[in-house]
Computed example of a mutant assay.
Amino acid sequence: MTDDATDESAAERQTEETPEEPVEDASTAGAEATESGERGGESEEAPTSEGLAGRAAEYDDDLAADVAALQTRADELEAELAEKDDRVEELEAGLRRTQADFQNYKKRAKKKQDDIRDRATEELVSRLVGVRDNLLRALDQEEGADIRPGVESTLKEFDRVLDDENVEPIEPDPGEAVDPQRHEVMMRVDSDHPEGTVADVYQPGYEMAEKVIRAAQVTVSKGDE
């Protein structure tokens, strides 16, 4: 056997042993590449209500209707929630305005009260200085002059001032029952008046609008012994 025949026989054996590589169809490869690209480029966003309903319709029309109804209800609830949020914000703004108005009102009311008190004090002082002027005139009289009429006149004027200010003296009569709210007991003394009653007034008290400014200082009878 010649060398050429030997080479041909070996080439044929090699061809039989080597498997043929499959030839990929160009159209098939292009379709797979396109499909792969589409899968890779899909958006990760959540499907819309129409998308959900459409996908559900692929399986069941009733299911698609239920999905659409649920999505409609969800949209309504979101709208209601947004409306309520707006209302809450409106109410909070109104509350802040009301609180600010109330604080301003309190400041105005306090200022008004302070003004009224200041005016009342000024008026009272202006009347009291008139009483003081009368006392000074009484003291300016010549030595030995009877100043009692002037003092009595000044006292009456002073009492008018107190009366106008709703101030009344507390001067219990002897024999009157002791009132712990209006009387301050200084001591117990022998007296013809019943035991435990007022024997005498040591110093008068004063009350204004039924409020005790100063309790009257009194002595109390120990009764007959």
Rank of each mutant, 00 (worst) to 15 (best):
Asp101Ala: 10
Glu90Pro: 03
Ala209Cys: 07
Ser153Pro: 00
Glu195Leu: 01
Ala109Leu: 04
Pro194Phe: 02
Lys111Glu: 03
Lys112Trp: 07
Ala65Tyr: 04
Ala11Trp: 08
Asp190Asn: 13
Asp85Ser: 14
Glu45Thr: 13
Arg117Tyr: 09
Thr34Gln: 11
Lys110Asp: 09
Lys106Gly: 09
Asp61Met: 06
Arg119Lys: 06
Asp7Asn: 11
Gln14Glu: 15
Gly144Pro: 12
Glu157Lys: 06
Ala74Pro: 00
Pro172Glu: 01
Ile116Leu: 11
Gly130Leu: 03
Leu52Trp: 11
Gly144Trp: 06
Arg13Pro: 01
Gly130Asn: 04
Glu21Leu: 14
Asp173Ile: 07
Gly144Arg: 03
Pro194Gly: 01
Gly41Ile: 04
Glu12Ile: 15
Gly175Asn: 02
Glu152Trp: 01
Asp3Leu: 14
Thr28Lys: 03
Pro169Ala: 09
Gly30Tyr: 15
Thr197Arg: 03
Glu50Ala: 15
Gly223Ile: 12
Glu21Met: 12
Leu128Asp: 02
Ser9Tyr: 11
Arg39Leu: 13
Thr6Cys: 08
Ala109Thr: 01
Glu80Trp: 09
Glu225Ile: 02
Ala33Asn: 11
Leu52Val: 05
Asp25Ile: 06
Leu155Pro: 02
Leu63Pro: 04
Glu143Gln: 06
Glu50Thr: 15
Arg182Glu: 14
Gln71Glu: 14
Leu136Trp: 14
Val201Gln: 04
Asp190Cys: 02
Leu139His: 06
Glu195Phe: 00
Lys111Ile: 00
Glu142Gln: 08
Val201Asn: 03
Gln203Trp: 04
Asp85Leu: 14
Tyr206Asp: 00
Ala109Ser: 00
Pro19Met: 03
Gly30Lys: 15
Ser126Arg: 05
Gln203Phe: 07
Ala33Trp: 08
Glu21Ala: 15
Gly54Ala: 10
Glu165Asn: 10
Gly205Lys: 13
Asp140Tyr: 05
Leu155Ser: 08
Thr2His: 10
Asp25Ala: 13
Glu92Ile: 05
Ala33Gly: 10
Asp86Tyr: 11
Lys222Met: 12
Arg87His: 02
Gly196Ile: 02
Gly196Tyr: 01
Ala199Asn: 12
Ile213Pro: 04
Val125Cys: 02
Met1Cys: 04
Leu162Arg: 02
Val198Cys: 06
Glu143Tyr: 06
Ala33Glu: 14
Thr34Asp: 11
Glu8Phe: 11
Leu52Asn: 02
Arg73Phe: 04
Lys222Arg: 15
Asp114Ile: 13
Glu78Arg: 10
